[in-house]
Amino acid sequence: MSDNNTNKGFSFATFWQRFGTITILLLLLVVLAIARPNAVFSSTSIPQILRQSAVNILLALGEFFAILLGYIDLSISAACGLTGMCSALLMRANCPWVLACIAGVLCGTMIGALNGFMINKTGLHPFIITLGMQTVYFGLMLVVSNSSSVYGFPAGFSKFMNATLWGVLPVGAIIALITAGILWFLTARTKMGRNLYALGGNREAAWYSGINVHRHQMLVYMISGTCAGLAGIVLTGRLNAAAPTAGTGYETFAIAATIIGGTSFFGGVGKIPGVVAGGLIIGIINYGMTVMMIDASMQKVVMGALIIIAVTLDHLVSTSAKK
């Protein structure tokens, strides 16, 4: 909701508010292109980056809605893992893979609805509820999978999930982009979306304006859960297996992508395209570190540091804009 840039002249802060995320994205690409030209200018690099980013983008899209309300959803990582596992088990039980995928996504929606229900009924901060539910869902995943990986899916599923459109767009990325398109429409063109911004800006004022807080909260967590469900399917497809610990730590990436994408942690400000860019940034950082042969443990250290740097930069610029 930062369309108020009717200012005269050029200001770095305004520029940053609008194009900061894209700038970071381009900078990262340039840095990577200089350090490892082969990793960027090759026919496989783009699909590779997109494939890695799809899950991040999907999870970030869900997280965006919770953060837009000034809340958070920590359970998406576990929801992603659990829904992927459910679909995997269904496929192993000879359920047609399309049905299994749909069931997985719906499972995500139901997980979100359960989160929303508990948040509305208890009145506790969603941080607490979703933190607890994250553990519950991770636990359930271990229970239903007997703590072992599930693999060996129908050929149709593997083929579909590993297909690419025009040789550049993997199916996972297409799913993420379609989801982003629908959610963009929801936030930018429907009353419900506008209500969410009002709620995030000022919950009590929204209530007095006739916006039912509980109904919207429920919806937000259902969206978040559905996105986690989609991410679960895409993740299972990419790995061609469902691990009993899949998704661990993904909520951090989702939160980071959302914030880097220009969403205010205090609620009420942010846009879907920014979130998509944020998810891509996380994907590129991951990809970049892999091609630069940084080992997996060190990648985590770098990732954490980069997230803090990005958010600090964003914070500094936006506070200086207010002066």
């Binding site: 909701m1 369309d3 108020n4 009353k191 419900m192 506008r194 209500n195 911004y197 009002a198 995030g200 800006g201 000022n202 009590e204 004022a205 929204a206 007095y208 304006s209 006739g210 916006i211 039912n212 109904r215 919207h216 919806l219 009420g268 400000v269």
Partner: peptide, 27 residues
């Protein structure tokens, strides 16, 4: 309680007419 602080005048003024003509409990 009066207005959304992240909204422009246009957006704030539109909240109530939108609610007035909305369906499905405001959604």
């Amino acid at each position: 309680l009066g207005f959304a602080k992240n909204f422009t005048c246009k957006q704030n003024i539109s909240i109530e007419p939108y609610i007035k003509e909305s369906t499905w409990g405001g959604l």
